[in-house]
Amino acid sequence: MRQRLGVVLFTLAVTVVCGGLVCGVNALLADRTASNAQAARQRVILRLLQGTAEADGLPGDRVAALFQDRVDTVTLQAPGQAPLTAFRPKGTAAAPIVFPFRGQGFWDAIAGFLAIDPAAKKIVGIEFTEHAETPGLGGRISEPAFRARFAGKPLDQPGPDGRRLRLVSEGTAAQPTEIDGITGASETSRAVERIVNRAADTILALLAAGGQP
């Protein structure tokens, strides 16, 4: 009996020490981790709004200051529509608006930001901030070469089936609304097509309904 109690107490002690170690390190670095995540988001938004990599090499606090300086965070609302957080450049009414998007990819959720020119109804840029697609195949969605394929694509010419954009086999995009997919990652390409089209539907509906901050 006594021996059994010893086993239980030993296991409990190891659990408490290990748990304490993990909690301690986590608590110690939580601020840093949170500000890293925040800075990563802000870098992406700044890149999309300005089209430059100005914020990329900067440390977290400088990025936050730059973000504060250049970006307005607004919530677009319209009657009958769910409100949407968006980011626009400070001071000008024109230029792109950046919207977050999220949807189910092949393995796990894909999330990111989409920059849209509201007047021309065109994509300005896209970035994927979160995904778990197969490294080297679907994972290539985060490569600049793939993201660049979205720039300038019109969102106001939906096809008969309602899809505004379609991802086609790599190298066969011929129409303005067609984008080269990724060979070897058909499911990821399909998921990205679905996610981007759905995000565009929501955003354009909101803008058409007079969505205002």
Binding site: F10, T11, V22, V25, N26, L29, T33
Partner: peptide, 23 residues
């Protein structure tokens, strides 16, 4: 069980440190 506990603790510490310093 004790081994897995200890290994898991070290791995999570590594993950947290990577998140903080090499995001």
């Amino acid at each position: 069980m004790v081994q897995v506990l200890i290994i898991a603790a070290w791995v999570i510490v590594l993950k947290i440190v990577l998140d903080a310093f090499l995001p």
